[in-house]
Computed example of a mutant assay.
Amino acid sequence: MDARAGDGPQGLEVLTAGRSEQDQRRVAGALRARGLGTGDRLVLLCPGEPAYASVVLGAARSGVVPVPLDPRLTAWERERVLDDLDAALVVDDSAALRALLDGPPVDLAPDPLCRPMHFTSGTTGRPKGVWSGLLEPHDARDLVVEERELWGFRADDVDLVVSPIYHSAPLRFATGTLLAGGSIAVLPHFDAAAFVDAVAQVRPTTMFCVPAHLQRLQQHLDETG
């Protein structure tokens, strides 16, 4: 795995699997130093960036459960979710997220020992956490292999994250790419012009998007030629 990390031609950060592996070990060390252990819940309430994926993987590979949440939740919405969680640590800004990358490096399990706990939207009632439990090492390995074969994650992939990374699909694409030895880049938010620039910069091979993204992209291209 390439241990380098750097910027695309216009400054968009590209995180390689090798660099992320180093970061994940430091994240695990930082969580351990804060007293978090197997089954504890780490809430992430911060904007998307490449470090986000490393924090999720560093936690999951040490048995700590990542809980990605929308940082735009209102105080009332946030309180309702957190009241149900019994969170061991809440990370609610980019500085606190990056601080987890400065821990002492420790050994990790080869594969994530749990899936992140994602919350439902709450459109029909109170938001509910979706939790599938901790995995035995052989089950963790089987899950990584299954998803790699299903989605075709490769070591030469560059995944461009264009959807909010706290959603399950874009986060799964990003972490799956890193686990396969590939690289990722993250748009802070979707903007059609920024997306076109990002494609030219980092030459992504994969991304997860929704129809609204494609509609906005087509409109932008129709207007700009």
Rank of each mutant, 00 (worst) to 15 (best):
L214N: 07
V210A: 10
S163Q: 09
P9E: 13
R25P: 02
H189P: 00
F173Q: 13
P211R: 04
L97M: 10
R172C: 01
A3S: 05
G8W: 01
S94A: 14
H220G: 02
Q219V: 08
A96M: 09
R80H: 12
P110W: 08
L187M: 09
V14M: 07
A192H: 00
D23E: 15
D7Y: 06
P9K: 04
V145L: 06
D111C: 05
A169S: 12
G225Q: 15
A88K: 08
S121G: 15
E13W: 12
D40A: 04
H213P: 03
H118T: 08
T124S: 09
D7V: 08
S132A: 14
L31P: 00
L69E: 02
G35I: 14
R126E: 10
V27I: 06
L100M: 11
D84I: 00
P68R: 09
F153C: 06
W76C: 01
A155Y: 09
L57R: 02
E136F: 09
P112Q: 04
P71Y: 12
I184K: 00
T74A: 05
D139H: 14
E13G: 03
W76P: 00
I165D: 01
G133M: 11
L108A: 02
R141N: 05
G18F: 00
G8A: 13
F190C: 04
V55K: 00
T123S: 15
L15Y: 05
P71G: 15
A212S: 09
G103L: 05
H189D: 14
G35M: 13
P204G: 10
E79C: 02
A212G: 01
P116F: 09
P9Q: 07
A212F: 13
R98W: 07
T124R: 13
D197L: 04
V130C: 15
V199P: 15
Q201A: 12
P50L: 07
A28H: 00
D2L: 04
L134H: 13
G48S: 12
G152M: 03
A198E: 03
D222V: 05
A174M: 03
D157P: 11
L12S: 11
G225C: 12
L45N: 07
T224A: 14
F208M: 15
G6R: 09
V55N: 02
A33Q: 14
Q218G: 07
R216N: 01
R41Q: 10
L171R: 10
C114N: 09
P47T: 14
A174T: 04
R172P: 05
T206W: 03
T120I: 10
L160M: 08
W76A: 12
M1H: 07
G11Q: 05
P211T: 04
P211A: 03
L134E: 07
D157A: 01
E147R: 13
L82T: 03
L179I: 02
G11S: 09
G39I: 05
D40T: 10
P50Q: 08
R41V: 01
G39F: 06
A174E: 01
G152Q: 10
F119S: 08
R115G: 00
P68A: 07
T205G: 08
E146W: 10
A155V: 12
A60T: 08
V130N: 03
L44G: 08
V162H: 00
G122L: 02
